[in-house]
Design a protein around this nucleic acid. Structure first.
Length: 571
DNA sequence: GTCGCTTGCCAC
DNA sequence: AAACGTGGCAAGCGAC
């Protein structure tokens, strides 16, 4: 293996002549001063193949790197392309995903349950001493008190490590690309198309009402500090210490029964809300105020770039194929208008939100083909219809508790819950829960039959192929541990929902409808579009997303919002 | 001070 | 035989 740092014209010429050679694949990588592409600098741009790597310091030789990208017309592979393509394109490159490959996507599609970091894969698949280069760099960084932003580009441990990443990536490509065959190749192409769309979406950003966040942050911080101070004076410890809270409650005669996995006394909200004690009330309030101030409003203020959040979307964040979002975690914002109202459209625009109706329940019904579930989706409210079938009597009031119980039981089935967990979630006595699940199974016998069929399929595969897995209709592989076969039903449903969601994104992109796309949330797409076009736009998107190629139709709902938490009236 | 674990809690 | 799934993040806390 050879590694080079471009420092002179001579080396630049040698690099360009190396770039002109024929090779199976060109690998690229970047090193940056941080993760925030809108403010952190691009420091090194690396090119490599299976035998040789080049590092180009961007501040000195950026023109050379951009020339190389512009003139190279073969395919280029990255490991997690979105990060590098973003950095390169915000620094003058014009890379298109048409010629981009991604070895991380390949690795995850082949082994969704394994770690997909470049170093992990290098060690696992190439037997490489990839982690040694990283340790050498870490040691040098520690010695020089350098971080990613300050480590000198001429430090051998840095640029050599950087070169090695491209060599590893090229070798990974040569190993993995031939394994992406058949239907998995279609899934791969879907993921790369999604990566492109999400890249644009992240760069576009979602608009935040910063003055509103600042006001709410202050208010929540004040509330939080008042509660902390009260607890400190009254009891001599902070509200955040669960062990001390539990001890104090017990000292005051409260009987605790729920345990944590680690063996302590649980003082979670479900426990505290049953306790008549000022400390219990203060802890509940304090946790919420703290979280609202720090995880939400505070993050929106500090993470935003001139009023826009540019989150990190991991297009293969979950083992099932779902996306995950971090910095900040925009997929798990409480459905509380106070928080969601922080998200606003651009001036003169509206937020258009289109989401699939009960997509996992519909896909579950598609797979298990139970006649009762299929019938319950025919018209009207599914959970009312299902409740009526279970109880053999018409139930028409959405507030009827039997509807909520049916809903809880339905999702318990999708997730593989037993009577105990179902009872806990639905907040009903275990006897009632057990009885209801029996009635559910009696009304929808296809559910249990299907779950058994999946488990039997997986058992057969363990014998014939050595591992347990299911494939989604698209061909996405969903493996499970041998002692977790019950999870496969959920993986099939969640994975297929991810396929549908991602296909809808690509379809919308082909129709030219993703230019204002600002956020994906598992089954919901949010757009930021001119107010005058919002309604027609929403109808078009909704129509494009809906599908009739499953046993039950996949339908969508649509909302036009002045803030994410508030709704316009519209018909 | 950093790291990793535990606990708790939010989403779909 | 029975088993609720997938994530991200903050604070506390002990270990290094």
């Amino acid at each position: 293996m050879e590694v080079h740092l471009v420092e002179t014209f001579q080396e630049a010429e040698t690099f360009m002549s190396w770039l002109g050679e024929r090779r199976p694949i060109l690998a690229m990588d970047t090193e940056t001063g941080g993760l925030d592409w809108w403010k952190d600098e691009l420091r090194l741009v690396q090119f490599g193949d299976s035998e040789c790597g080049w590092a180009i310091p961007f501040h000195l030789w950026g023109g050379l790197a951009l020339d190389a990208i512009r003139t190279y017309d073969g395919p280029i592979t990255f490991h997690n392309a979105k990060f590098d393509v973003r950095y390169l394109n915000t620094n003058g490159a014009e890379l298109s995903y048409g010629k981009v490959h991604d070895t991380r996507v390949m690795a995850v599609l082949l082994e969704p349950d394994k770690r997909s970091g470049l170093k992990d894969l290098g060690v696992r698949l190439l037997g490489a001493d990839a982690d040694e280069w990283e340790s050498a760099l870490n040691k040098a960084k520690a010695q020089g008190k350098w971080n990613w932003a300050t480590v000198p580009t001429t430090l051998p441990e840095y640029w050599q490590y950087a070169c090695m990443d491209t060599i590893l990536t090229a070798r990974l490509y040569e190993l993995l690309n031939p394994r992406i065959t058949g239907r998995l190749r279609e899934v791969y192409e879907l993921e790369i198309a999604v990566e492109n769309i999400i890249d644009d979406m992240e760069r576009r950003g979602i608009h935040i009402d910063i003055p509103y966040c600042k006001y709410q942050f202050e208010s929540m911080t004040d509330a939080s500090q008042a509660l902390s101070a009260w607890c400190e004076i009254e009891y001599g410890f902070g509200v955040g210490s669960n062990a001390k809270v539990a001890a104090q409650l017990q000292k005051d005669g409260v009987l605790l029964t729920k345990m944590t996995p680690g063996g302590g006394w649980s003082v979670d909200e479900s426990v505290l809300k049953t306790i008549d004690h000022p400390l219990a009330i203060a802890v509940i309030k304090s946790r919420k105020a703290n979280r609202y101030a720090s995880a939400y409003f505070g993050n929106y203020i500090t993470m935003s770039d001139e009023g826009f959040l540019h989150p990190d979307v991991n297009i293969l964040g979950a083992r099932t194929g779902r996306m995950s979002i971090s910095r900040p975690a925009l997929q798990q914002i409480p459905r509380d208008a106070l928080l969601r109202n922080a998200f606003i459209p651009r001036d003169g625009n509206a937020l258009v939100s289109v989401d699939y109706d009960q997509i996992e329940m519909r896909l579950f019904t598609h797979f298990c083909k139970d006649p009762g579930l299929i019938a319950a989706f025919q018209e009207g409210d599914f959970f009312l219809n299902a409740a009526s079938l279970i109880h053999h009597t018409p139930i028409t009031d959405k507030k009827d508790p039997r509807r909520q119980l049916t809903k809880n039981a339905s999702y318990a089935k999708i997730y593989g819950a037993g009577p105990n967990k179902f009872a806990e979630t639905a907040e009903v006595p275990i006897e009632d829960a057990t009885m209801f699940l029996m009635e559910y199974d009696a009304a929808f016998p296809g559910v249990h039959t299907f779950q058994q069929a999946i488990i039997n399929l997986a058992k057969g595969r363990i014998i014939e192929e050595g591992s347990a897995f299911v494939n989604t209709p698209l061909g996405r592989r969903e493996p499970a541990n041998e002692d977790d076969l019950y999870k496969l039903v959920n993986y099939l449903v969640q994975g297929t929902a991810a396929d549908v969601f991602k296909q809808s994104l690509v379809q919308l992109d082909r129709m030219g409808l993703t230019e204002n796309f600002v956020l994906p949330v598992h089954d919901e797409l949010v757009f930021d579009v001119p107010l005058s076009e919002a309604e027609e736009f929403g109808r078009t998107v909704k129509a494009a997303m809906e599908r009739t190629d499953f046993t039950v139709p996949l339908t969508c709902g649509m909302d036009i919002l002045e803030r994410w938490g508030n709704k316009y009236e519209y018909e």
